[in-house]
Structure formats: structure tokens, C-alpha cells
């Protein structure tokens, strides 16, 4: 089966490839949004915006879908790390919802800390995605 889509070897491997630009954009955006949310005091709700978490989750999901159907070895690892990101961020969102809407505990420092640390895990996986993507790109050019 021929590989199509982002990340695969195509005829245009040395030139600009719109597919690759979009793919790299989403992977990088997932990392930056994730980082933006993570930045700040770990237990201070004022430093962590809910919209940033929402955006990080949505972009993370889109990045996952873009990696689906990749048959290369590196594509598989990218997909795995992306799934980890989604899992971590969804867990963070669920904790948020549980604290604010379900149990009325509110955003106490303890709750905030656990949300942010979950997103920290996602950050690590996002970082790995970017590193892998960079590695793949350099190995193609060699």
C-alpha cells in the first residue's frame, strides 16, 4: 500500500508540501497550547485558563486524526504519543468538570495542581511528538 498523507515520503520531499505544513502546524500548536496552559503556579487557578485547555485538547484530537492511518514506524510512535496527549488532557478536563460541576469542591489548589500536572504529562508526550517529527524530517533530507 502506498503511503499518502503527511509524514510519508512523496515526490515533493525536498520542496514545500502543504500537507506537511498543516501536519507540522498542528503538532507544534498542540505543544505550544499545552505549554501555555501548563505555565504558571501549579496550584493557582488564575494562571491556568480553561480555554487554553479546551484549545489544547481540540488541537490534540485533530493532530491524532491526522496521524491515523500512517503505516510507517515513526508514524506509529507519533500516533501513540498523540493518543497519550489526548488521554492526559481528557483526564484533566474530567477532573475539572468533576471538581466544579459535579462535586462543588471548586478549583482548590489541590484540584488545580492535579489538573496542571496531568497537562504536564501531556506536554511531555507533545514534546516527544515534535522531536520525532523533527528527527524524521532531518532523516529525509540526509
Amino acid at each position: 500500500m502506498t503511503q499518502t498523507g503527511p509524514g510519508a515520503l512523496t515526490d515533493e520531499e525536498n520542496g514545500m508540501n502543504l500537507g506537511k505544513v498543516v501536519f507540522g502546524f498542528f503538532v507544534l500548536l498542540a505543544l505550544t497550547l499545552n505549554f501555555g496552559f501548563f505555565l504558571g503556579d501549579i496550584d493557582n487557578p488564575d494562571h491556568h485558563n480553561v480555554y487554553e485547555l479546551f484549545a489544547a485538547l481540540v488541537v490534540g484530537l485533530i493532530a491524532t486524526v491526522m496521524k491515523l492511518g500512517e503505516r510507517s514506524q515513526i508514524g506509529a510512535v507519533l500516533l501513540a504519543s498523540s493518543l497519550v496527549v489526548d488521554l492526559q488532557l481528557i483526564a484533566a478536563a474530567v477532573v475539572w468538570v468533576m471538581a466544579v460541576h459535579v462535586t462543588d469542591v471548586g478549583l482548590t489548589p489541590a484540584v488545580m495542581a492535579s489538573i496542571v500536572s496531568l497537562s504536564g504529562g501531556a506536554l511531555l508526550a507533545n514534546l516527544l511528538s515534535v522531536v520525532l517529527l523533527t528527527l524524521e524530517t532531518t532523516s529525509i533530507n540526509r
Partner: peptide, 9 residues
């Protein structure tokens, strides 16, 4: 599965 995901992207 791969074909499915490729088309469903």
C-alpha cells in the same frame, strides 16, 4: 483499518 482511517481523516 488503515484504509478506513486514511479515508476518514
Amino acid at each position: 483499518l488503515f484504509l478506513f482511517f486514511q479515508r476518514m481523516r
